[in-house]
Design a protein around this nucleic acid. Structure first.
Lengths: 196, 196
DNA sequence: ATTTAATATTGACCACGGTCAATTATTTCC
DNA sequence: GGAAATAATTGACCGTGGTCAATATTAAAT
């Protein structure tokens, strides 16, 4: 039978997370150094890797938590009445994802779980986004010729797309919001009216 | 006035590229080591970085070339008559992108140029994909209530989306082709018919 | 209380990408 | 042809993420 987790273990883990949050608050996600984190936490380097598979596993945890907070908020929202309402609801989530180019890269890299057994925090938020958006959109006045699941899948694709364009020097005629609005309009209300 | 490039320089560069291609053919993109490449090319490590900004700049070059080959092919194709024709045309491009998870990550990471002055090979292929797809789709029997540019932008977003799902253990009820087909159907022919 | 087994921590060590002052090769100019 | 200027190459060195055998701590068994 498995033994209970030691109190010491939880304390160490908490100290590592707190130290990492401190470092990130000062220098950002990309510039965070494991050496700096263990120094502040007062543990040896090896301890870090006893608690987290690698550096990015910890970052994934922290970023996943921030995304989850946004999904909680969206989930509690009333049904969206139109496209601008959707865009307004999504922007805080977008803000998290574009806070740093590195954060977006990391989100993309970890969005797909390699195996069912190891679905990480970010992969989980993607699955949850799909579900949350699906239910939310189904309550709004949008096209019904396709399933809500397909609709939310497309919205997710467009979200990623406009963020990628945001980081691209080439497409700067429109703002991120404008591009998202245009795509969602064409996706959710093709022909400018509700389809059945 | 700028001097002409030395013959020696071109030879060294060619040897580095050939060596890298050899290594990649054996172990793949992710496992390619700079040390192994310079060993085979018979140059010092520093020489590598005199020719390429960093390791990924070389990988970007090689992968960009492969993508460009696919775009050449698509560009030469007759106008697509229906959705399956589009999917068929895009699959070889998809094959390049999913050849390795690392390749897809790298493509995403380099798809956006940080500054206009430094648009890398992969960012260029993205701009070109937009243009090639736009012209190609405009010739097909698809919705006309939105601009061809918006249409191709959406297709690109869905391409990335289904590849991301392909690498995700969660969504394996459908094949990549089936998902792409379903999304493109809903995007290019909403309501199952052509809109004006 | 002591032994034993499981778990957590340590830090020297390694791998690998990337840097840069020094050296060597090439081109230009007289 | 030789000197000066420019360009290419070298390899010792560094930073940082990650490993692992040894050690220390904690909990369970007697």
């Amino acid at each position: 039978m498995a033994r209970a987790v030691q109190k010491r273990t939880l304390e160490t883990r908490a100290r590592l997370i707190a130290a990492a949050e401190g470092v990130i608050a000062e220098v950002g996600y990309e510039a965070m150094r494991v050496e700096e984190v263990v120094l502040r936490a007062g543990v040896a380097k090896g301890t870090f890797f006893a608690h987290f598979r690698d550096k990015e596993a910890l970052l994934e945890l922290l970023i996943g938590a921030r995304i989850d907070t946004e999904l909680d908020r969206i989930e509690a929202l009333p049904a969206p009445a139109d496209i601008p309402a959707i865009v307004r609801a999504l922007m805080p989530l977008v803000a998290v994802m574009i806070s740093e180019r590195y954060v977006f890269d990391l989100i993309l890299r970890y969005s797909g779980a390699a195996g069912v057994a190891e679905i990480g925090p970010i992969a989980q938020t993607f699955a949850r986004t799909d579900q949350v958006l699906g239910e939310w959109l189904a309550r709004g006045p949008f096209r019904r010729d396709v399933t809500p699941a397909l609709l939310s899948s497309g919205v997710q694709a467009f979200l990623i797309h406009v963020i990628a364009l945001h980081f691209c020097a080439l497409h700067q005629k429109q703002t991120l919001q404008e591009m998202l609005m245009e795509l969602l309009q064409a996706w959710l209300l093709p022909g400018g009216r509700i389809k059945n």
